[in-house]
Simulated assay, not measured.
Amino acid sequence: MFTILFTICMIWFIGKFFIFGLKASWGILKLLCTVVFFPVILIGMVVGGLLYIAFPLLIIGGILALVVSRS
């Protein structure tokens, strides 16, 4: 009886840590995309001569940041 209860508790415990790991990695990925990847892509577009694409993306990103920060 103890073995079955122990197995169920271990599966629950490992499942909780798995969900926690997924949430943490998603948060880190969002931070990396916001702080590193998006500005690097925009700078690369400007250097490559794609200003007509980079500026609308920058404006849309700014509007979304304002809307999300207000709610």
Rank of each mutant, 00 (worst) to 15 (best):
1 M>F: 04
3 T>A: 02
5 L>T: 06
6 F>M: 10
6 F>T: 01
6 F>H: 11
8 I>G: 06
9 C>G: 09
10 M>V: 09
11 I>R: 01
11 I>C: 04
12 W>G: 12
12 W>I: 14
13 F>N: 06
13 F>R: 09
13 F>I: 12
14 I>D: 10
14 I>G: 03
14 I>W: 10
15 G>H: 08
15 G>D: 01
16 K>I: 14
17 F>W: 13
17 F>P: 04
17 F>Y: 14
17 F>I: 10
18 F>H: 13
19 I>E: 06
21 G>N: 05
21 G>R: 12
22 L>H: 02
25 S>D: 03
26 W>T: 13
27 G>H: 11
27 G>R: 12
27 G>K: 09
27 G>V: 07
27 G>W: 08
27 G>S: 06
28 I>D: 07
29 L>H: 06
29 L>D: 05
32 L>P: 07
32 L>R: 13
32 L>D: 14
32 L>N: 13
33 C>G: 02
33 C>F: 07
34 T>M: 09
36 V>P: 07
36 V>T: 10
38 F>M: 10
39 P>W: 08
43 I>M: 11
43 I>C: 02
43 I>V: 12
44 G>Q: 11
45 M>F: 05
45 M>G: 14
46 V>E: 13
47 V>F: 01
48 G>I: 08
48 G>S: 09
50 L>F: 15
52 Y>V: 06
53 I>T: 08
53 I>Y: 14
54 A>C: 04
54 A>T: 03
55 F>K: 14
58 L>G: 07
59 I>E: 08
59 I>A: 15
60 I>T: 10
60 I>V: 13
60 I>F: 15
60 I>Q: 00
60 I>E: 05
61 G>Q: 01
61 G>C: 01
62 G>Q: 02
63 I>S: 03
63 I>T: 03
64 L>A: 09
64 L>N: 05
65 A>N: 11
65 A>Q: 12
66 L>T: 07
66 L>C: 00
69 S>L: 07
69 S>F: 04
70 R>L: 06
70 R>S: 08
70 R>H: 04
70 R>P: 00
70 R>N: 09
70 R>D: 00
71 S>M: 09
